[in-house]
Design a binder for these strands. Structure first.
Length: 669
DNA sequence: CGGCCTCGAGTTCC
DNA sequence: CTCGAGGCCG
């Protein structure tokens, strides 16, 4: 009896959810909806055996979570290349046509054009039809597990409406807050005397990161599905087929998504969406164009992290005008003088902008930006604000043309500018600004990752002459910190401990932290692996350094020059004395005698189970070497999806070709 | 030598 | 995220 009623109520509530979120047409008032939900909850309380995992009452169930764990995506979530205007869109189409012609495809491909929702990308994994996991995009490789919070979003189905759901399907889409709901939310907050939220996107992001799902449940989050990721037990042939499949099974799919042929139709569709922008009821920042056929998508592949088969057509960003109060200069750790605009605060696209970068003197003068001008400020999406140019009609004649100072604003030494460089440089090696920025670089996440020492603290420690070089950090004591404002026994202890903990950072990160010009994290790690220790690197000459993969004469010279400087050598010695790791750990050492020793392996195309880095890591851990180009010396070429020209080259050179399964065998997996 | 790709450096805001 | 520059393939 009750079981039947539970079924009825579940079906009814789901239909209402769908009407509300999919057709944007609520068919019942809140009271009726709540009454049905309450009745269902009572029945379930009376007989807990009736509770189904996908019952509408089970949206808030997880309780308070203890933070969010990082989860690796089943397949990387790619980013999108941008087209800022029609020309760039047409250029993309031409590149596409050329690649397709080369691949023997005839005629124009079909495209799908979709509004690009300004929200947060999510990955929803359904196993056997039930929502198992929801993860934020993160860096594309791994994101945060927000399952408990996403379950509270009524637009997200807890189960797939299908009697025979696939074993596994990853649904991707955008979580967002509709503008109307956002306005209402802010009105409620005003009434309650709470501060209002700035914009829907950030509020949606904040809502998903709530530790208590009950709070997330109260936020008006919505969802559009727009892609499929990992799959098992089902196959699609085109993007629009996948979207239709989703729409038929209870997933919200944006009704403005259209399929068409020919770039001219695509262009018109993009502009049509742009014209509708204000009337949509949610924020968008462009249109996304995708090649419809999944086979063609595979043929086209990706460049870096951007798939070649899709592009984001960006709408011109929101712009505002404001007054340019002044132009200030930062001196970076490399000595580069970076001018930035001091602006009268102005709200652009939901954020108050006070500063904007101005790149260099030439750029400022080419745009004819003068201090005192009314300037146009632009902010695309949530990207860095830019000063586009002056409003010439507002000129009074009192504006000042900008000139880069002749002396460094931080140390007063003369500034140097080479003809061929765009930037001015302070070349004083003891410039305080360069020192401080160097220390900030040292503590940064990718370098020593010293939590508990922030930029402000570095500034203060430098002023107080407690820390003048990075190595001085390791001499800091609790007694040094206690007199500083904001430090108690506990916080001082934590800071000292965090600094000490950084001594164990891998050599590659330490080398990066030293701040050698042209040496970023990737290059630092390559050099670290090639030399094994700081000691060996210091002995090496430029020529030997240039043999490292990805290092040419310019970088090699920069490294050798750095190593030859007695002051740098003293700094290295101080770090050594402090106990900082200056050599590879045992598990990072090039394996002398592994199963792949002496083998050179090239990986091409996209592998299912490995990112490029992971594949490289796995090979190196077994003693093998990886390179990018196929030659007679290559032992194997590992070929993933959508490979490039390397396959043909491998065949020609008679190099054995492995697919992913063969690669796993090789690795002994 | 030209073009493509990858990497480095600096930046803003919450 | 973007711009510029270094490295490397063709």
């Amino acid at each position: 009896m009750s079981a039947k009623r539970v079924d009825e109520l579940t079906t009814q509530l789901r239909a209402w959810d769908r009407a509300y979120y999919l057709q944007d047409a609520p068919v019942v008032d809140d009271a009726t909806y709540d009454a049905a939900l309450r009745e269902l909850r009572e029945l379930e309380t009376a007989d807990p055996s009736l509770v189904r995992p996908d019952s509408p009452t089970q949206r808030i169930g997880g309780g308070v979570s203890g933070g969010f764990s990082e989860v690796r995506h089943l397949l990387p979530m790619l980013s999108l290349a941008n087209a800022r205007d029609d020309d760039e869109l047409l250029a993309w189409d031409q590149r596409l046509q050329k690649l397709l012609d080369a691949a023997g495809h005839e005629g124009e491909p079909a495209f799908v054009v979709e509004p690009k929702i300004d929200g947060l990308a999510l990955s929803l994994v359904y196993r056997d039809g039930l929502l198992e996991r929801a993860v934020t995009r993160g860096d594309g490789e791994a994101g945060e597990d927000v399952t408990a919070n996403v379950r509270t979003i009524r637009a997200v189905p807890l189960s797939i409406d299908d009697p025979n759901p696939p074993a596994l399907i990853e649904v991707r889409g955008e979580c967002y807050i509709p503008l109307e709901a956002f306005k209402r939310l802010n009105e409620e907050r005003l009434d309650a005397g709470l501060p209002v939220y700035m914009n829907p996107r950030n509020t949606a992001a904040g809502s998903l990161r709530q530790l208590d799902p009950a709070i997330t449940a109260e936020r008006p989050l919505a969802f559009w599905s727009y892609a499929i990721g990992a799959l098992e037990g089902i196959e699609f042939h085109s993007h629009h087929e996948a979207l239709q499949w989703l729409a038929a099974r209870g997933f919200p799919v944006n009704p403005r998504i259209k399929t068409m042929t020919g770039i001219e139709a695509v262009r018109e569709a993009c502009h049509a969406i742009e014209h509708e922008r204000e009337a949509l009821g949610y924020d968008i920042d462009g249109a996304v164009v995708k090649v419809d056929s999944l086979a063609l998508q595979a043929t086209l592949g990706a460049v870096g992290r951007d798939p070649r088969w899709a592009i984001a057509f960006k709408f011109p960003p929101t712009t505002r005008t404001t007054k340019l109060l002044g132009i200030e200069i930062n001196v970076g750790r490399t000595g580069a003088l970076n001018p930035f605009a001091e602006l009268e605060p102005v709200e652009v696209g939901g954020v108050v902008v006070r500063h904007a970068t101005l790149h260099n003197e030439e750029d400022i003068n080419r745009k004819d930006i003068r201090v005192g001008d009314t300037v146009i400020v632009q902010r695309a999406g949530d990207v860095i604000p830019q000063v586009i140019g002056p409003v010439l009609e507002d000129r009074t004649g009192n504006e000042q043309v900008f000139k880069m100072p002749a002396d460094c604003p931080a140390c007063g030494e003369p500034v140097v500018k080479n003809e061929e460089d765009a930037k001015h440089f302070c070349v004083n090696p003891r410039c305080p600004s360069r020192d401080v920025e160097g220390i900030k670089h040292f503590i940064s996440r990718s370098a020593m990752d010293i939590d508990g020492v922030g930029e402000k603290l570095v500034d203060r420690l430098y002023e107080l002459e407690l820390v003048r070089r990075s190595s001085d950090l390791y001499a800091l004591t609790v007694d040094d910190l206690l007199p500083l404002e904001g430090f108690q026994e506990t916080s001082a202890n934590n800071t000292v401990a965090a600094i000490a903990a950084s001594k164990a950072r891998p050599f590659g990160n330490v080398l990066f932290g030293l701040g050698i010009p042209h040496v970023g994290l990737v290059t630092a790690q390559a050099i670290a692996r090639a030399f094994g220790s700081m000691e060996r690197l210091l002995e090496a000459g430029a020529e030997e350094i240039a043999e490292v993969e990805g290092v040419g004469p310019i970088i090699a010279e920069a490294v050798a020059g750095w190593c030859a400087d007695p002051e740098r050598q003293a700094e290295v010695a101080a770090l050594q004395a402090a106990g900082v790791t200056l050599e590879l750990a045992a598990d990072e050492l090039p394996v002398e005698d592994g199963p792949l020793s002496g083998k050179t392996i090239v990986v091409t195309g996209t592998l299912e189970g490995f990112s490029r880095d992971e594949a490289k890591d796995a090979i190196e851990r077994l003693g093998g070497k990886t390179t990018d180009s196929v030659s007679k010396k290559t032992s194997y070429v590992v070929v993933g999806a959508s490979p490039g020209s390397k396959v043909a080259k491998a065949e020609k050179a008679g190099v054995p070709i492995l697919d992913e399964a063969g690669f796993r065998d090789l690795l002994g997996l």
